[in-house]
């Protein structure tokens, strides 16, 4: 109750940050978080097998994956989003297909674009980490008579994940910032909310500084989460 009166007093006489616009920002925060979290999760799940395939000695496995990561890292995310959101409409019969209820919403095309994009980057990050596995570790595993898959599971992947952690933390932050383009396909994410408030009140500084502060808070949360993870998982690398 006291909190409520404090809150209404805080907002009193403020034309821009009314309970209504704050609820837009809140909905935007929820949408951005969902979009970034789900696309990172799906991207991660996709990236692990892709990274293993990418480091395969068989070219018929590694080349198609290389082509995929090359295309998705070599084109702007905005273009990918446009192609998936507007382009999918021109696929014949898509409106009658079972996928249409999903593709009709702006959220799922955006989710697909972000997932494919982050999966491409994450694949390359993991591939680098897999490649950087110390030769000695692999030779030791072979000497123990481990099969290729057991070696991958027990030796290569666990150490590769740890090596990839700092670079992957950056990818998560990039993804959060890249999600700002979701508002061009009508999604009301954080940036969408800010653009709405800006257009409604002609107040660029208030609208965008406020949303920038929210992004900063989110970035700090991600940074500290990864710092915590690195402390736990990379403890053995700390100088004694």
């Amino acid at each position: 109750m006291e909190l409520m009166t404090w809150f209404t007093e805080l907002l009193e006489g403020n034309l821009i940050f009314t309970p209504q616009t704050l609820s837009y920002y809140w909905d935007g925060l929820v949408t951005t978080t969902q979009l970034v979290f789900l696309s990172l999760l799906a991207g991660l799940v996709l990236a692990v097998p892709l990274a293993i395939g990418r480091s395969s000695r068989h070219r018929w496995i590694s080349l198609p994956i290389y082509a995929y990561t090359y295309v998705f890292r070599g084109t702007p995310l905005l273009i990918q989003l446009y192609i998936i959101y507007y382009g999918v409409v021109f696929v014949d019969g898509i409106q009658e297909s079972i996928f249409w209820p999903l593709l009709r919403e702006a959220f799922y095309p955006a989710l697909i674009a972000f997932t494919l994009n982050t999966a491409a980057y994450t694949t390359e990050i993991f591939r680098g980490a897999i490649k950087a596995t110390a030769r000695g570790e692999i030779e030791a595993a072979r000497a123990y008579g481990m099969s290729q898959s057991l070696m991958m599971r027990r030796i290569i992947l666990p150490s590769a994940f740890r090596r990839a952690l700092p670079a992957y933390g950056n990818e998560v932050i990039f993804m959060l910032h890249a999600s700002a383009i979701a508002s061009v396909v009508t999604l009301m994410d954080l940036t969408g909310a800010a653009r709405f408030v800006y257009a409604r009140f002609y107040a660029p500084f208030e609208a965008f500084l406020f949303v920038a502060a929210i992004y900063l808070c989110l970035t700090f949360a991600i940074l500290y989460f990864f710092r915590f993870l690195e402390k736990r998982l990379l403890a053995h690398l700390k100088p004694a």
Partner: peptide
Amino acid sequence: VLDMQAGR
């Protein structure tokens, strides 16, 4: 207009 044509 494009999204209206698309049925969105």
